[in-house]
């Protein structure tokens, strides 16, 4: 599997490493995907890198690659963001993978081996949901709102109504809320705020977890929040050019 830029892998690693230390990557002809739970089983993260994300991709037999994020991060730090990455996994020797970074400009090539782990991964069946509300907005704006409000209080409430979407945090000494209304005068789709809902709803989530979830803003200019009463929120970042997505499910806080 050859990616045109290592930056994609670096961003994916950044988006999951606070939640997950080791995870199985499933490789098949459609691409590479992973699903993992954080140790507290509060957040589920799913990553899909489709064949379209790669400059070239071939997977003759489905394989599971057990990756330890820490050494993987060390290896990836050796790659320039605009260097090509080739990942090679051999079906005859499933003990390790090879990573080759190529810098075409400097005619430099570097090669690494990463030992694979035997991970007893837990998989969760996520049912298809009929969401009560969906909000799409610029991922940078969502990130700023979450980062700012997480400083105010550890509970982040998201309310959707005719007024728009309201994000609220309450701390011991202060309380803050931010309201976003659907944008009408913005041309660029990536800058638009779109809100749809069937019934008004209000749900509360742990702000520190939500902060971790906003790391994926580096992977996509937009984010979609899908909510339903008394259900985990789904926060989805779609990568450009059908390259894939990263999705997080975060369980709510309740009385």
């Amino acid at each position: 599997a050859r990616l045109p830029r290592s930056a994609v892998l670096k961003k994916i690693l950044d988006s999951v490493k606070d939640l997950v230390k080791e995870t199985n990557w499933d490789c098949n002809e459609e691409g590479m995907s992973m699903q993992a739970l954080d140790t507290g089983r509060i957040v589920l993260v799913e990553v899909m890198l489709r064949e379209a994300a790669f400059e070239s991709y071939a997977c003759e037999v489905p394989m599971t690659l057990g990756i330890d994020m820490e050494p993987f991060g060390k290896v990836l730090r050796c790659a320039g963001g605009d260097e090509k990455v080739t990942i090679k996994a051999s079906r005859n020797d499933q003990d390790h993978i090879e990573l080759v970074f190529e810098n075409e400009e400097k005619e430099r090539m570097s090669a690494f081996e990463l030992k694979l782990m035997d991970i007893d991964g837990e998989h969760m069946a996520v049912p298809d949901a009929e969401w009560g509300a969906e909000i799409s907005m610029p991922s940078s704006e969502f990130k700023k709102i979450v980062m700012d409000l997480a400083e105010i209080g550890s509970d982040l409430t998201i309310a959707v109504s005719k007024l728009g979407v309201t994000f609220t945090a309450q701390g011991n000494n202060c309380k803050g809320s931010m309201v976003l209304q659907p944008s009408t005068a913005v041309d660029k789709k990536s800058e638009q705020v779109a809100i749809s809902f069937t019934e008004p709803l209000e749900m509360t989530f742990a702000a520190p977890y939500m902060k971790m979830i906003t790391k994926a803003a580096a992977l996509s200019s937009t984010v979609t929040l899908s909510l339903d009463e008394a259900c985990p929120i789904c926060v989805r970042y779609e990568m450009e050019d059908n390259a894939g997505h990263i999705k997080y499910y975060l369980a709510p806080k309740e009385d």
Binding site: R41, E122, H123, A125, A206
Partner: peptide, 14 residues
Amino acid sequence: GLAQRGLSTFFRLI
């Protein structure tokens, strides 16, 4: 205060 629920109460582990 509010209690944090776990995902296992919503999704099935397989």
